[in-house]
Design a protein around this nucleic acid. Sequence first.
DNA 1: CCCTGATTCGC
DNA 2: GCGAATCAGG
Length: 200
Amino acid sequence: MSWTDERVELLKKMWTEGQSASQIAKELGGVTRNAVIGKVHRLGLSNRTGGAAEPAKPEPKAKPEKVEAKAEKPAAQPAAEAPEPKPAAKPASPAPAQAATPAVSPARKAIIPAGQPLPPQPSANEIDPAALAKVGEVEKHAKKLGLMELTERTCKWPIGDPATEEFWFCGLPSQSGKPYCEAHVGVAFQPMSSRRDRRR
DNA sequence: CCCTGATTCGC
DNA sequence: GCGAATCAGG
């Protein structure tokens, strides 16, 4: 692959958007992130601040001027990710958010779409209060990823009700080979000794 | 461990 | 010019 005009343009665009080199490389295809970074530097746009390609500008550190508030809300992310065939987990058919058939028993519970090892319900269980608190805390910071945004290294802990809009996945980095982030691993894989030995 | 960008240097 | 290898952080 060579750096055609189009590819360079896409590179510039994505880099300016704040995409990481690896993401750009994936998008372009046929190049590694090293290639992307190398090209970025050769193009002289290592600085992602608004397109000014200043070859040399030490700029100690005195710039009260804000660059600009880039609207990088994940909510507006159009999911332009390349659908890589990940072996991990990709439930193909999201449950219909709304059953358009009122004829069905209204009292029925919503279907659960995930084809993945669903974690135990964290609610009524007797897990370490500390762990629960940690989960509650971490869920505030959840990246709220959709199904398509999940990778092997993102926490796949579901949050909310799948039948409503209030449903997403934790999405925080799962640093191990685990499917969840540390906090959720804590409540997912309980050593099955919650408080049995609490007596003393 | 995973990731990030930065730099070097043989090609 | 290119990018793998390496470096230097998080």
